[in-house]
């Protein structure tokens, strides 16, 4: 572990369609595919290269598929080893995971959140099954699994109230995550595990990886995705936060989970450009793989 003050070294949008791991055919996943969703997977390969060059201790991920209606929860058991079966696409994702969690950092984020007035809870049940969003984003970002992770739940405040209320929780959550990381002395990589537009087809083709069926759900979704990506390229994080409620409602975005807001807040609303590795659709949803590098601040672009 680095002895200097902790910091977030990079943040990324790392969406978690199970189709990506399915198409990768890693040994951990039971089903096998012929191919599929290459543009997004290739984007992930480029992001992996960038992460490999970095010196970091922990991956911190906020997943839309650990859904908590009371407060924000943080994984706090040192190791998990089990089988994750996607409840929506069990035909694609049955993944045997074996991962380590940074429990100290979990406790620090939890304490920091409580101090800021957020409802926080540690998840300490060893039989708990880590959600598939966490596993997929972490696998695609770091298939070697050679770093511990930390998973933060998605408080379902968008559904309880509105996307504005969600931001009221996710912005301070991002701030306390950053503070806790700084105090921890650790170098962390942050992943927001969400798609952009999230309308998806309700039928699956006979061969799930048959790419002749794959396209954006509708033009409205695509326009929204391109608008957001354009703002990411221009470093307009504050503006993204400003229009987030409209984006969430009009494109049924998975940013309803708070993950994207949390990320931008933790990164202190970057005014530098994100590196866009690629964009593609999965069963109609829009997915961008993108990184904000806190050291270069997009300078190499």
């Amino acid at each position: 572990m680095n002895v200097a003050a902790g910091k977030i070294i990079a943040g990324a949008l790392a969406p978690h369609p199970p189709h990506l791991v399915y198409a990768e055919n890693p040994p951990q996943n039971e089903p096998t595919a012929e191919c599929g969703w290459e543009p997004i997977r290739w984007a992930y390969y480029e992001m992996q290269k960038s992460f490999k060059k970095k010196d970091y201790d922990v991956i911190v991920v906020l997943s839309p598929h650990w859904q908590t209606y009371i407060g924000t929860h943080v994984l706090a058991v040192p190791e998990f080893k089990s089988l994750s079966v996607d409840p929506v696409f069990p035909n694609l994702f049955r993944y045997h995971y074996d991962l380590k969690v940074d429990v100290d950092l979990a406790k620090q984020i939890c304490d920091e959140g409580k101090e800021a007035g957020l409802e926080m809870q540690l998840m300490q049940n060893p039989d708990f099954r880590v959600d598939y969003g966490t596993i997929i984003s972490c696998h695609m970002a770091n298939p070697d699994w050679d770093k511990p992770i930390l998973s933060i739940s998605s408080n379902r405040s968008t559904h309880y109230y509105s996307p504005d209320y969600m931001q009221g929780i996710s912005i301070p959550l991002g701030e306390v995550t950053r503070k806790a990381i700084e105090k921890s002395g650790k170098r962390c990589l942050l992943l927001a595990s969400n798609s952009l537009s999230h309308r998806h087809f309700t039928k699956e083709p006979p061969i799930p990886e048959d790419m002749s069926y794959e396209h954006i759900y509708n033009h409205n979704q695509y326009l929204w995705d391109m608008r957001i990506i354009d703002m990411m390229r221009k470093g307009q994080s504050q503006e993204i936060l400003d229009i987030m409620p409209d984006f969430v409602e009009q494109s049924v975005s998975e940013a309803d989970s708070g993950a994207f807001t949390w990320l931008l807040s933790a990164l202190e609303r970057p005014t530098y450009p994100a590196k866009i590795y690629g964009y593609g659709t999965v069963i109609g949803t829009g997915n961008v793989v993108a990184e904000w590098d806190c050291d270069t601040k997009g300078a190499e672009q």
Binding site: W66, T68, F89, D127, F128, R129, D131, T202, K203
Partner: peptide, 21 residues
């Protein structure tokens, strides 16, 4: 479920369940 309706058909499902909340 989002891909239509799903029907559990595993004759003997067995697990140690933990609620996510």
């Amino acid at each position: 479920s989002v891909i239509g309706h799903q029907i559990q058909s595993n004759p003997n499902p067995e697990w140690k369940h933990v609620d996510e909340l």
